[in-house]
């Protein structure tokens, strides 16, 4: 029989974006150490339904660490204390019997609370719409092997593209900045030959859209520490360089409008 934990949870409850929220205290007894953190919340919800209370809303879907839907600040850390782990992959054996666990939504002005632990991260989609794509209409592509991509570029591009868009970087940042997300999405495309045609237009548009929603980066590095996919801070440096280049290259000469 696996180990059982008795826990106290302080969970943020909030009815809607414009309503005041508060912490509720729940006890979770007989939690199996084999449960994931979200299964522990399922268990609490099952108990709430039995006792006639409204279950806690939280975002989740694939439960295998790839869709980026799950979130949560667990004891003040985005996705909890484990490195490079999403909340759905965090297991209860990482906690101790008798622990008190504080569960909050990702907090950032650009991520308004929808209800309880659910937040609205659609500002990330606005950043992608600003230029996080390569404009190639369906059918227009030539044979894939006509454009060799150096293996190193492809691999680094993949490292950036592994971002799951969960928003932990923003939640962990004291400034609620989205540099890690934006730079990962930008580097994915700017590093490879296919992305060159729109490179500087993309950079300027994505960075400035990001700034319209999020705070500024002051190099704390908390984003990387919280990132479930271990996205490197180097991409932020890469983005900053490309942004400077973009401001020069995109500058219109006098007389041109």
């Amino acid at each position: 029989m696996s180990k059982q934990l008795n826990l106290t949870l302080q969970v943020w409850r909030q009815n809607g974006p414009d309503e005041a929220g508060h912490f509720e205290t729940y006890t979770a007894e007989g939690i199996s150490e084999d449960m994931s953190f979200l299964e522990m919340l399922d268990t609490i919800n099952e108990g709430l339904v039995q006792s006639g209370q409204t279950p806690i809303e939280f975002d989740h879907d694939c439960r295998e660490g790839i869709c980026g839907t799950c979130s949560l600040m667990i004891n003040g850390q985005a996705h909890g204390q484990e490195k490079a782990t999403t909340t759905c992959q965090l297991h209860m054996r990482k906690f101790n019997d008798g622990d008190t666990i504080v569960v909050e939504p990702f907090r950032a002005r650009a991520f308004p609370v929808v209800r309880d632990l659910v937040v609205d991260r659609s500002s990330f989609d606005r950043i992608i719409e600003a230029g996080g794509y390569i404009s190639v209409n369906t059918g227009a592509a030539s044979d894939a092997n006509l454009t060799p991509v150096p293996k190193e570029a492809a691999d680094t591009s993949f490292d950036a593209a592994a971002c799951i868009g969960c928003g932990a970087c923003v939640a962990a940042c004291p400034n609620s900045a989205a540099q890690l997300f934006t730079s990962a999405k930008l580097a994915h495309l700017n590093l490879i030959p296919q992305g060159q045609a729109q490179r500087f237009e993309r950079t300027e548009n994505m960075v400035e859209t990001m700034e319209s929603f999020f705070g500024s980066c002051t190099n704390h590095g908390e984003c990387h520490e919280a990132c479930p996919k271990d996205i490197s801070l180097d991409f932020i440096a890469f983005m900053n360089r490309d942004y400077v280049k973009a401001k020069v290259k995109n500058r219109k000469l006098a007389g041109q409008t």
Binding site: I134, A140, A141, A144, P148, A154, L189
Partner: peptide, 22 residues
């Protein structure tokens, strides 16, 4: 075959050989 062409053009980082081909 068209799917691979389309996805590669979109920047999908498929695994590559050292020569840069898929």
């Amino acid at each position: 075959v068209n799917i691979i062409d389309q996805a590669a053009a979109q920047g999908v980082p498929f695994a590559r050989e050292y020569g840069g081909l898929l």
